[in-house]
Design a protein around this nucleic acid. Structure first.
Lengths: 243, 243
DNA sequence: CGCCAGGTTGATTTCGCTCAAGCAATGTGG
DNA sequence: CCACATTGCTTGAGCGAAATCAACCTGGCG
């Protein structure tokens, strides 16, 4: 519990391709050197926690590889999956900026590699490069936009539509496209987690899955999913003709 | 349509009490002078739009008085009320920072006064004072936190519980407390808007209201609400004993 | 005066939750 | 290596909450 991140190797940030495409892209060479020096990388096994709701904030986490689930607890104490995070994404910046405890938990869904950038280093970087703050600001507004879209979804769409929406998003990230246009993927989450991310019960997800199967729209076998024609899914997102 | 804000008076920002308590609190005297010079204030009648989804972003809006509703359109084209904003709140910073069209609409619910700070001035202010950017960052993370809590609510609580939650929030803002502890308020929104903010139909809100009335928990007469004991409402938020 | 948006109420149906049982895969200790 | 617990998933039955459809009311306003 003392030094989770001490055991990790320390690959350089210079080599990190993802850096070009996220908030760190505004750093100068000198600043990347500082970042690289103050960062530790660690690999997490599936199900392992990166941080827990209520933990003190040690810094921010930058995902190098894998899939991370961000969770919260509802009023009854059930774990609710809020969203998924992927390589290049930064986690825990909220607790860092507000200087408070984590309000969410983050957990590796598959085997994942995550870099921790410790508080003091990040504080220094933010002070030396104001553009970095604006990058985080951009990240926050993007996240806010995603959250608002999700609110819209959960308040206006049916469970079936939301599940289909989720499947499409997952296909985007995890799907393989075959030559004939058919798609397949291995789901990164359990049925229970799929239920919680769309705000329903796992039994309901099971039933919708069974119905999609019966309709030939998608084929499920454990966590394997096969989608013959993605248009069949997309069509369901379009609201009825609305006459 | 050309110069909505030109007609407004121009009270000075120096006199604005709210400034002490929001993002502008980090500005120097000199910077406040610039802010004051580049800002125009305008009063909106109930129902009047401040900006619409899809509009180009003219700058950010700072609420001086009144109650503002922030809306989005769902997939079927219905207006959904996302949240309410109050004096001291800043609107439209997202479109400004991302340099894109507004993704939400803002509309005065009651008669309201709102100040527009135009793009160029704000750009200059952000450049001269990095702390201002961090203030906006804080605002964004706060909004993000609120949005996540709302997702949690809508996915885990019943319509009744969500309506009660809404009533409590509104009481906080709009309620009067009498000497004997009883509370009352004039609702700032229609039943339809209450329905859309908690993600249900207006008929359902009507029915829940009728039930609360029958149970003696709250009394409704048009937009007037009277709550004999607020504890009766609060108790409903607590999840069952959970044995 | 009559129209209209907003609100209420009723009847009906649909959807999704709860409870419950059964099953497969995985893990654990003897 | 087997008995057994555990966890995740599926399926069924019944029920309850809320959506839908529809009629009607009300107050405000041209």
């Amino acid at each position: 519990m003392s030094s989770q991140h001490a055991s990790g190797s320390r690959p350089t940030c210079f080599a990190c391709q993802l850096r070009e495409r996220n908030e760190w892209c505004v750093l100068s060479e000198h600043e990347v050197a500082l970042l690289s020096r103050c960062q530790t990388s660690r690999t997490y096994r599936p199900g392992e926690a990166i941080y827990m709701m209520g933990d003190a904030c040690r810094g921010v986490y930058c995902i190098a590889a894998g899939t991370i689930g961000v969770r919260k607890l509802d009023a009854a104490g059930n774990s609710v999956l809020l969203h998924l995070a992927y390589p290049g994404d930064t986690l825990g910046y909220r607790a860092f900026l507000a200087n408070e405890e984590h309000r969410t938990s983050a957990e590796a869904l598959g085997s994942s590699t995550v870099c921790l950038i410790e508080r003091p280093a990040l504080t220094r970087l933010l002070a030396m490069n104001p553009a970095l703050g604006l990058q985080f600001l951009r990240r926050a507004t993007d996240d806010l936009h995603r959250a608002e879209e999700k609110i819209l979804q959960t308040t206006t769409l049916s469970n079936r539509t939301r599940l289909i929406h989720l499947l499409l998003v997952l296909l985007e990230r995890h799907g393989q496209v075959r030559a004939d246009g058919e798609r397949s993927m291995k789901l990164p989450l359990s049925r229970g987690d799929m239920a919680s991310i769309i705000g329903t019960r796992h039994e309901t997800v099971s039933r919708i899955v069974a119905r999609l199967e019966a309709e030939g729209i998608a084929h499920f076998s454990g966590r394997k999913v096969h989608v013959p024609q993605i248009e069949a899914l997309i069509d369901e997102l379009v609201p009825p003709p609305a006459n």
